[in-house]
Write a protein that binds this DNA or RNA. Structure first.
Length: 551
DNA sequence: GCATTTAAACAGT
DNA sequence: ACTGTTTAAATGC
C-alpha cells in the first residue's frame, strides 16, 4: 500500500494513540458509536508517525503496486487473530485492523448500522488518523478501492438497496454471515462450484455485453431478460415496485444485495412521490450527510401528524409509509450457498430497523393498530379495526372507490409479482415475503388498467378486508393499517369475522368500484379523483391528485 | 492454502 | 465520476 511507512519498518503513521478511537465518533452520531473495539489497543507504536501524513503514500502507492514492501505488516492473515497481536508492529499503516474490520466498525458506529460507501469513506477519514489526509483526490483511490473490494468480497457485509434516488446502497453487517466475521463461502461457493458459472454471471456477462446479456437470463437470473416488465402504465409505479421487490439487474451477482428496502420511510416514497405528494417532507431526507436515522424518521412522521392530522392526503402518505414499513420488515440476504440465491429474513433480524419501524408506526398511526398488524406475534387488531371502522362506515360512497383502489392495487401488485416477476427469481422467494409485504406505494400506482383487470381475481375475504380498511380511509390510521392485513397473512385473517359484519357494505362498494374500473378501462386517475375530491375535509381537496399544497 | 492488501478491468448509474 | 464486482498478484502465516 501506499504507506510509505512500510519501508521504514515500524512506521506507524497513526502515531497518536489508539488507532482510530480518538477521532471517530465526533460528528454526526450522537449515538455514540459504540465501538466494539474488538481490538486491543495498539501499544502506541514507537514510530512517530506524523511525518507520514504529508508524504502520504501517494507516491508509494503507485510504485509499490503489488509488490508492496510493507515491512510493517508482520502479522498477515488471521484477522481474527488480530486481537492477539497486541504489541509489536501494526499490520497496516493504520494499525492492526484490516479493512474489513474497519468497515465493520464504521457500520456499527452508525446509528442505524448502515452506511453508504461514501459514508464509509467519510468515517475512515474522520476516524482513522491514517486516512485523515487521504480523504480526497488521488490519494484516496487506493484505499477506497480496497474498501469497495472488501465490501464486495466479504459476505459479512451486505448491501441494501437504498431507495433514495441517486444514492448508493446501504452497507450493513450481515447479521448472519457476520458471525464469524468473515465468510468466504459466498465467493468460495461460486468459484468452487463452477468457475465457469461464476465467470458467466460475473465478468463474462459484463465484459462483452453484446453477447452476454441474453444468456444470463437462463437459469440463474432469468429475470434479467425481462425488460423491466411490461406492465404498469404508470412509469413511476414501475420503478417503485421494481425497487421494492426485485434484485437489481445490474449484475447478475446481485445476490449480495438485500432486495426489500430496509431504508426506512424516508427513502422510497420520497423518491417517487415526495415532490409530488409531500413536498414538505423532502427536507428531512436531504441535508445531512448522515443517512436518515431513526430519530429523523420519527420526526418526520411527527411532522406529518402535526401538519395535517386529518387530511386525506396525509392518510395517503401514511398508508404509503405503512407499506414501506411492511416491506422493510422482510428482506433478503445473499445466501452463501447458491449463486443467485437469496434468503429472506424476518424483521427481527435487524433490531435497529425493526425498532425504528415500530416506533415510527406507533407514532403516526393509531396506537396498536399498525404495530399489531405488523408484528407477527401480535393478535389480530380486531378491536382497533372495529372501532375505527364504525365511525367511518356511513361514509362509503365515492370515497370508497378511491380507497378501494388502493387496496385493489395492492392486490393487483401482488398478483403481478407472484405471477411473473421481472427478475425471474423464484416465485416463492419473491412472491412470498416480498409480495406479502408489498403495499401499494401510492394510490395512483394501483389504478392501472391492468390492475383493474386483476380486480376480478380478488377474493372476497381479502378484498373485504381491504375494502374495510379502505373505508376507514379518512383517518390515516386505518389506511395505513389496511395494507398490512392484506399482505401480511391471510391466514391471520380472523379479522374477517369482524369484517363479515361489514361485508354487505363492502360488497356494494366493491361492485361499484369494479364497475367503475371496468368501465373506464384506463382507470388512471378517475378512481382517484372522486375520492380525493370528495371532501369531507377541506384539506382533502388539496390533496387531490398530486397537486396538493403543503399545509 | 488462507487471509489481506493493492491494483486494475469492467459494468451499471 | 461513483459505485460495485471480479480477477489477479504479492505477501505473510
Amino acid at each position: 500500500m501506499a504507506e510509505p511507512g512500510g519501508s521504514g519498518g515500524g512506521a506507524a503513521p497513526g502515531a497518536a494513540a489508539p488507532d482510530i478511537d480518538p477521532d471517530f465518533e465526533p460528528q454526526s452520531r450522537p449515538r455514540s458509536c459504540t465501538w466494539p473495539l474488538p481490538r486491543p489497543e495498539l501499544p502506541a507504536p514507537e514510530a512517530g508517525g506524523a511525518a507520514e501524513e504529508g508524504a502520504g503514500g501517494a507516491a508509494a502507492a503507485a510504485a509499490a503496486g503489488p509488490g508492496r514492501a510493507e515491512g510493517a505488516r508482520g502479522a498477515g492473515g488471521a484477522a481474527a487473530a488480530a486481537a492477539a497481536r497486541k504489541g509489536g508492529s501494526r499490520r497496516n499503516a493504520w494499525g492492526n485492523q484490516s479493512y474489513a474490520e474497519l468497515i465493520s466498525q464504521a457500520i456499527e458506529s452508525a446509528p442505524e448500522k448502515r452506511l453508504t460507501l461514501a459514508q464509509i469513506y467519510e468515517w475512515m477519514v474522520r476516524s482513522v488518523p491514517y486516512f485523515k489526509d487521504k480523504g480526497d483526490s488521488n490519494s484516496s483511490a487506493g484505499w477506497k478501492n480496497s474498501i469497495r473490494h472488501n465490501l464486495s468480497l466479504h459476505s459479512k457485509f451486505i448491501k441494501v438497496h437504498n431507495e433514495a434516488t441517486g444514492k448508493s446502497s446501504w452497507w450493513m453487517l450481515n447479521p448472519e454471515g457476520g458471525k464469524s466475521g468473515k465468510a468466504p463461502r459466498r465467493r468460495a461457493a461460486s468459484m468452487d462450484n463452477s468457475s465457469k458459472l461464476a465467470k458467466v454471471r460475473g465478468k463474462a456477462s459484463k465484459k462483452k455485453p453484446s453477447l452476454q446479456s441474453a444468456p444470463e437470463a437462463t437459469a440463474d437470473s432469468p429475470g434479467s431478460q425481462f425488460p423491466k416488465w411490461p406492465g404498469s402504465p404508470s412509469s413511476r409505479s414501475n420503478e417503485d415496485s421494481d425497487v421494492w421487490n426485485t434484485f437489481r439487474p445490474r449484475t447478475s451477482s446481485n445476490a449480495s444485495t438485500i432486495s426489500a428496502r430496509l431504508s426506512p420511510i424516508v427513502t422510497d416514497q420520497d423518491d417517487l412521490h415526495d415532490e409530488e405528494l409531500l413536498p414538505s417532507m423532502v427536507y428531512s431526507s436531504a441535508s445531512s450527510n448522515v443517512p436518515p436515522t431513526v430519530t429523523e424518521e420519527l420526526e418526520l412522521i411527527d411532522g406529518l401528524n402535526l401538519m395535517s392530522p386529518s387530511s386525506s392526503v396525509l392518510s395517503t402518505q401514511q398508508s404509503a409509509s405503512g407499506g414501506q414499513i411492511q416491506r422493510d420488515s422482510s428482506f433478503s440476504l445473499r445466501s452463501p450457498n447458491a449463486a443467485g440465491q437469496t434468503t429472506t429474513f424476518g424483521n427481527s433480524l435487524f433490531n435497529p430497523v425493526d425498532i425504528s419501524l415500530q416506533s415510527s408506526v406507533s407514532h403516526f398511526s393509531g396506537p396498536q393498530t399498525l404495530e399489531a398488524l405488523l408484528t407477527p406475534s401480535s393478535p389480530p387488531p380486531r378491536d382497533v379495526m372495529m372501532t375505527q371502522v364504525d365511525p367511518v362506515l356511513p361514509q362509503t360512497g365515492s370515497r370508497m372507490s378511491g380507497r378501494t383502489l388502493l387496496l385493489l392495487g395492492g392486490q393487483a401488485t401482488q398478483s403481478k409479482m407472484s405471477s411473473g416477476n421481472p427478475r425471474g427469481k423464484p416465485a416463492e422467494q419473491q412472491a412470498e415475503p416480498v409480495g406479502a409485504s408489498v403495499l401499494p406505494s401510492t394510490l395512483p400506482v394501483v389504478a392501472s388498467p391492468q390492475n383493474a383487470g386483476s380486480v376480478n381475481s380478488l377474493k372476497a375475504p381479502v378484498s373485504a378486508a381491504a375494502a374495510q380498511s379502505v373505508q376507514l380511509g379518512s383517518p390515516p390510521l386505518l389506511s395505513s393499517a389496511s395494507p398490512a392485513p392484506l399482505g401480511l397473512n391471510q391466514d391471520r385473517l380472523p379479522i374477517d369475522l369482524d369484517i363479515d359484519m361489514y361485508m354487505e357494505n363492502l360488497e356494494c362498494d366493491m361492485d361499484y368500484i369494479i364497475n367503475s374500473e371496468l368501465m373506464d378501462g384506463e382507470g388512471l386517475d378517475f378512481n382517484f379523483e372522486p375520492v380525493l375530491s370528495t371532501p369531507s375535509y377541506p384539506s382533502t381537496s388539496q390533496a387531490s391528485n398530486h397537486t396538493w399544497v403543503p399545509s
